[in-house]
């Protein structure tokens, strides 16, 4: 994308159907009841892509919603993170699950190295610092 999307491109499905594609490249028009019945459509075709999230981030920013845009950008990185890993890191971020800062920093490194999730890695690193200051690395149960 060269031109940034604006609020006038929203909703994308209506205004910019050329941009809307599922994970395996199918457009909404390809996803018909007939194609579902024929078995051509799987859940993969119904998943949002990192591209779509970045497009929505642009629109959110154009609507002066910077924090929402930042969330969509983190989410765009998260698309590549498998569910188990995602839920494992979430669990580690809960109070007392990580008993040392290292555990969180390892998780951050994993996000960065395996999934190129720079923003998420920074976010987890930041959490590790704050948790250390607030004494959250201790067993709660």
């Amino acid at each position: 994308m060269t031109e940034k999307l604006t609020i006038h491109d929203y909703p994308l499905a209506e205004k910019r159907p050329d941009l809307v594609r599922g994970k395996r490249g199918k457009s909404p028009d390809d996803i018909t009841l007939a194609s579902v019945i024929d078995g051509e459509i799987t859940m993969e075709d119904l998943r949002i892509t990192a591209t779509a999230l970045l497009q929505q981030a642009e629109i959110a920013r154009a609507a002066s919603r910077d924090t929402l845009a930042a969330n969509f950008e983190r989410a765009a990185e998260m698309v590549a993170v498998p569910e188990d890993t995602m839920m494992r890191v979430y669990e580690l971020l809960r109070p007392g699950r990580a008993t040392s800062k290292t555990v969180l920093l390892d998780a951050a490194r994993e996000l960065q190295e395996r999934y190129s999730a720079t923003r998420l890695a920074e976010f987890v690193t930041e959490a590790a610092d704050v948790y250390e200051q607030r004494g959250l690395f201790k067993n709660r149960f």
């Binding site: 969330n71 969509f72 765009a76 990185e77 809960r94 998420l120 976010f123 987890v124 959490a127």
Partner: peptide
């Protein structure tokens, strides 16, 4: 903390939902 979360864990979850 008693609710078993932190602002970071919840924000991570927010991104998780959007990513799906």
């Amino acid at each position: 903390v008693d609710g078993d979360d932190t602002p970071w864990s919840k924000a991570f979850l927010a991104a998780a939902y959007a990513s799906r």
